Simulated scan of single mutants.
Amino acid sequence: MALLLRESVRPEPERRAAAPKGLGRTGRGEHTGVLVDAADAPAPRVRAAAALARAGSALRRRAGTCCPC
Rank of each mutant, 00 (worst) to 15 (best):
L4E: 08
A58C: 00
T65V: 15
C67Q: 07
A58G: 05
A43T: 01
D37A: 15
A55V: 07
R6F: 05
R25Y: 01
G29A: 15
L4H: 12
R15D: 01
G24A: 07
P20I: 04
D40A: 15
A63M: 11
A2V: 09
A2T: 12
A51I: 01
P44R: 13
A50N: 06
R15T: 07
A18E: 14
D40C: 08
L23I: 03
E12N: 08
G24T: 07
P68D: 10
A2C: 01
H31D: 06
L23F: 08
V36E: 15
V34Y: 11
E30G: 10
V36H: 03
T26A: 06
L3H: 11
G27N: 06
P13D: 09
L23M: 08
G27M: 02
A17R: 04
C69V: 12
A17C: 09
T32Y: 03
E7L: 11
G22V: 04
G27C: 04
R61S: 12
L35T: 02
L4F: 14
T65P: 03
T65E: 13
H31G: 01
L52Y: 00
G56S: 07
P13S: 09
S57A: 13
A18L: 13
R28D: 14
V34A: 13
A39W: 03
P11I: 05
A51T: 12
A49C: 08
T26I: 11
A49V: 06
P68L: 11
L3Q: 15
R6W: 05
L3G: 10
L52E: 14
L5Y: 08
R47T: 01
G29E: 13
A41E: 15
E14F: 08
A38C: 09
A49T: 02
A43I: 00
P13L: 09
R28K: 13
L59W: 03
A43L: 09
E7K: 08
T65G: 07
C69A: 12
A38Q: 03
A49H: 02
A39I: 00
V46Y: 03
L52K: 09
A51W: 07
A50E: 05
G29S: 13
G24Q: 05
A19M: 05
A18H: 09
L59C: 02
R54M: 12
A50T: 09
E30P: 00
V9N: 10
T26R: 13
R62I: 00
A50G: 05
R28N: 14
G22L: 09
E30Q: 14
R6Q: 12
R61V: 01
L5S: 06
C67E: 09
R45T: 08
L3A: 14
E14H: 04
D37N: 13
R6D: 12
P42G: 12
T32K: 09
G64V: 02
A43W: 03
V46S: 07
D37M: 10
H31M: 00
G33W: 03
L59V: 12
P13Y: 04
E30C: 10
M1I: 04
R10P: 00
R61I: 01
R62T: 04
P44Y: 05
K21D: 02
A63K: 13
A50D: 09
R45Y: 00
M1L: 12
S57Q: 15
G56A: 06
R47P: 04
